[in-house]
Amino acid sequence: MRVKLGDVCERGTSNLKLSDVSEKNGEFSVFGASGYIGSVDFYQQGYPYVAVVKDGAGIGRAMLCPGKTSVIGTMQYLLPKDNILPKYLFYVVKYMNLEKYFTGATIPHIYFKDYKNEEFNFDFWERQVEIVSVLSKCEKVIDLCKQELQLLDKLIKARFVELFGDPVSNSYGLPEATLPDLGEFGRGVSKHRPRNDIKLLGGKYPLIQTGDVANAGLYITSYSSTYSELGLKQSKMWDKGTLCITIAANIAKTAILEFDACFPDSVVGFIANERTNNIFVHYWFSFFQAILESQAPESAQKNINLKILSELKVIVPEKRKQDQFASFVKLTDKSKVAVQKALDEAQLLFDSLMQEYFG
Rank of each mutant, 00 (worst) to 15 (best):
E274V: 12
A216C: 06
W238K: 03
C244H: 08
P206W: 03
R195P: 12
A214P: 01
D212L: 00
Y227E: 06
L200V: 10
S235I: 02
A255D: 01
D239P: 11
R187W: 09
I256C: 00
D212M: 01
I208Q: 04
I198V: 15
K240G: 08
G269Q: 09
G211Y: 06
N273D: 13
I198D: 15
F185R: 08
H192C: 13
T210M: 11
G241V: 01
S190F: 09
S266A: 11
A249C: 09
I271H: 12
F185Y: 12
Q234A: 01
D181G: 09
P206A: 12
R275C: 11
A249D: 06
F259H: 04
P180G: 10
V268W: 00
I271T: 14
L218T: 05
E229C: 07
G186M: 12
S228Y: 02
F185K: 08
G231W: 01
E184T: 14
D181P: 04
F259G: 00
P194W: 09
W238D: 01
S235V: 00
K233V: 03
N215W: 01
G183K: 09
G203C: 06
F270S: 07
F263L: 03
L201K: 14
D181L: 10
T242Y: 03
D265L: 02
T226K: 05
I220D: 01
L218N: 04
P180A: 12
Q234Y: 06
A272R: 06
I256E: 02
V213A: 01
Y219W: 13
K253R: 13
K236L: 08
N196P: 03
L230Q: 09
G231R: 05
E229D: 13
L230M: 11
K204P: 09
P194K: 06
E184P: 10
L243P: 03
R193T: 15
H192L: 14
Y205Q: 15
F263C: 02
S235E: 01
G231F: 00
N196F: 14
E229K: 13
L179H: 09
T242G: 02
S235Y: 01
L218K: 04
Y223I: 05
V267N: 02
Y227A: 05
C244F: 05
T178A: 06
C244A: 13
I198Y: 14
W238V: 00
P264K: 04
L230R: 07
G186I: 08
G211F: 06
P264I: 08
G241W: 00
L207Y: 15
I251G: 03
A261P: 02
P194Y: 10
E184F: 14
L200S: 10
S222E: 14
